[in-house]
Computed example of a mutant assay.
Amino acid sequence: MIYAFDTYYLNDIAKTVCIAFEDWDSDIEKEIFTEKISVAAQYESGAFYKRELPCILSLLSKINLKENDIIIVDGYVSLNDDGKMGLGGYLYEALDKNFPIVGIAKNEFSAADSQRRSVYRGVSKTPLFVTAIGIDVDEVQKKIEKMHGSFRFPTLLKKLDQLTRE
Rank of each mutant, 00 (worst) to 15 (best):
I144M: 02
A41Q: 08
S61Y: 02
K143S: 10
K36C: 14
K125G: 03
N98V: 03
I70R: 08
A41W: 04
N98R: 12
D69H: 12
R121M: 12
A41C: 07
N107Q: 04
V140Q: 01
L57S: 02
P54D: 07
G46F: 06
D81S: 05
I104P: 08
M85G: 00
K143M: 11
T126W: 08
G75D: 02
E145T: 13
S45Y: 07
V137M: 06
L60P: 07
C55V: 07
L60Y: 04
F99Y: 15
I133N: 04
Q42E: 13
D96A: 11
G75A: 01
N107D: 09
N107G: 04
A47R: 15
N64L: 14
Y49S: 13
A111D: 06
G86H: 01
A105T: 04
M147S: 08
L60Q: 04
M147I: 10
F99R: 10
E44Q: 14
K97N: 12
L53T: 06
G89C: 10
P127N: 00
F129Q: 07
G46Y: 04
K36Q: 14
K106M: 04
L128W: 06
D136M: 07
E67P: 05
K84E: 04
F129T: 03
K142E: 11
V39C: 07
Y90N: 10
S114D: 00
N80I: 08
D74A: 00
K125F: 11
N98C: 08
F99K: 09
F129K: 05
I144T: 03
R116L: 14
R51Q: 11
K62T: 08
I135T: 01
K50Q: 03
